[in-house]
Design a protein around this nucleic acid. Sequence first.
DNA 1: CTGAAAGCGCTTACAG
DNA 2: CTGAAAGCGCTTACAG
Lengths: 335, 335
Amino acid sequence: MASIHDVAKEAGVSIATVSKVINHYPDVSDKTRKKVKLAIQLLKYQPNVVARGLVKGRSWTVGVLINVPFTNPYVAELLEGIKIALEHSGYDLMRLSTRLDDPSYSFIDHCQSRNLDGVVVFGVEYNHPSLEELLRSEIPAMFVDTALIGKRAGYITTDNEKAVEIAVQHLYDLGHRRIAYISGILGHEISDSRFSGYKKQLELLNIPYEPTYFRLCDYSFEGGSLSMESLLSLQIPPTGVVCTSDMAAFGAIHEIEKQGIAVPQDISVIGFDNTYYAQVFKPALTTINQNTHNIGIRAIENLIKMIEKTNTQPPVLTEPSSLVIRQSTARVKEM
Amino acid sequence: MASIHDVAKEAGVSIATVSKVINHYPDVSDKTRKKVKLAIQLLKYQPNVVARGLVKGRSWTVGVLINVPFTNPYVAELLEGIKIALEHSGYDLMRLSTRLDDPSYSFIDHCQSRNLDGVVVFGVEYNHPSLEELLRSEIPAMFVDTALIGKRAGYITTDNEKAVEIAVQHLYDLGHRRIAYISGILGHEISDSRFSGYKKQLELLNIPYEPTYFRLCDYSFEGGSLSMESLLSLQIPPTGVVCTSDMAAFGAIHEIEKQGIAVPQDISVIGFDNTYYAQVFKPALTTINQNTHNIGIRAIENLIKMIEKTNTQPPVLTEPSSLVIRQSTARVKEM
DNA sequence: CTGAAAGCGCTTACAG
DNA sequence: CTGAAAGCGCTTACAG
């Protein structure tokens, strides 16, 4: 690897001059500039980002802390968006350790010892001590799906409330009046606002909120199927169910069919996420589509803005979602 | 952020001594060592990895070049394995740009300007010019699912040949004799060796290889369904089909059922990948399970070995797979 | 056992 | 317009 010294020698100038050419300083004569550029080409010189970073106190690297397996489809979409937004930005992406629960590990220290310019955080619990440190620090951060604001930290989430409102409305339009909701565990921004959307829309439609039609689960297939089992055991079971994830919806449908009941003829089910398999599943799943890809892109765009313009206010952003109507919802049977 | 100078001042020693303590050099008196450790604690000092890297010519970072969307389930599994293997290794992971087709972008330059210690490569075409450069370079590399060997580059793949052999054998054991194979595009290691496994096993079973039972597709749902359509139009269609991906298998089944034929009663179908949805799909898919997770782990383990022991031979590794038998295969109808 | 000095590959005032 | 020098935060012979 040629260094700046090699180029300087080859061009017969000082390393300061080479540096100025590399960084497009104007105060270099055309003649010198040409000589230097030639030498750069000749030696296939590539400035060392690490060395540059050391003196500038930067790394041209953003970290991503994702405390969820990569096999989670949401994460995949998110990363894909992040990747796209980073592609021509000059920044590279570094994955940060998720040894968050190891007391000898400090997330902030990790960021600082690597001179990271900023971080995207997803899937970490609200009140994790590492996050508090981060919120107080000078490190620009964007949280995804976690409503936290810090000195230089903003966040972006799907408009979760609106999403469930639309789902409930869709069932209502199909004649459903007994609409259940299978929720994720409350206490997280996303679960809370989805739940609030559910109640809000019921209220708007003059349907009293019925706690027996509310179930908690963990987003999984099994969770959805257990919740559904319990809903089906009610005296008057619901005719429509909104689930907090596609997986839970798959589980719910599985349970319904196991009991010899038909989807969507007898019960309509709506998922949340529009994972790839929502369309492969039988029946193809009516589900809420999050623009996860866009969320990734906007998270990075806003992070870079914060990095490069020190006075930027930490943004609070919301991304719209939409309902994708397929085969798992239908007009209610009895009226 | 405290620097090594701050610690030295606090402890009343030179920075050289602090450095020796940090790096566990033996030639420091207990008394001095204690003083320094105290100062480190007091100032919450964390050595700067970037500065250290500059002088050592290393970065404690491995790059990953994945020229396939993150939404690909194989990639997700692979990354998960990579993550696990990296967790306590002291290395961080950097995602490298996939602007491979941009002529102004050089993969090698990127690695070198970041001082990367090694790279894992997946999903890049065999004969991409960037790879040739890499093969000749001093940068340790592990290829996943691409059979390339370089100066310091080895590879790991699933035992693809064996995998298809087992699948064919399974159909044979169920009484099938007309066994088709829906392949990925040939010219890639994985497609070639799977195809070779297909032919080899047929030969072993004394079934003549029948080119009309061979189809090419692109791993996708649509590809599988088109291939199947063409197979079904044969005078004597196959009774069993091995597909090169779960997606292709889903597509094939979709096409079969569209024509009013039943899976597995009339035709048995086997997938490849054992994606999560293989078990959710109806019928649940019999498929080949790759230990992608293990592949990721072993790729990193071997990469680190190459990085840390300069004289390590580039490894060539194979990971076993297994057949997961579910509902999409059954005893042949006619005998 | 300890520390002054050179150096990793850069950038940036500053003097000329 | 050009370059010598200091410095980013470290490590490592080397001298004492």
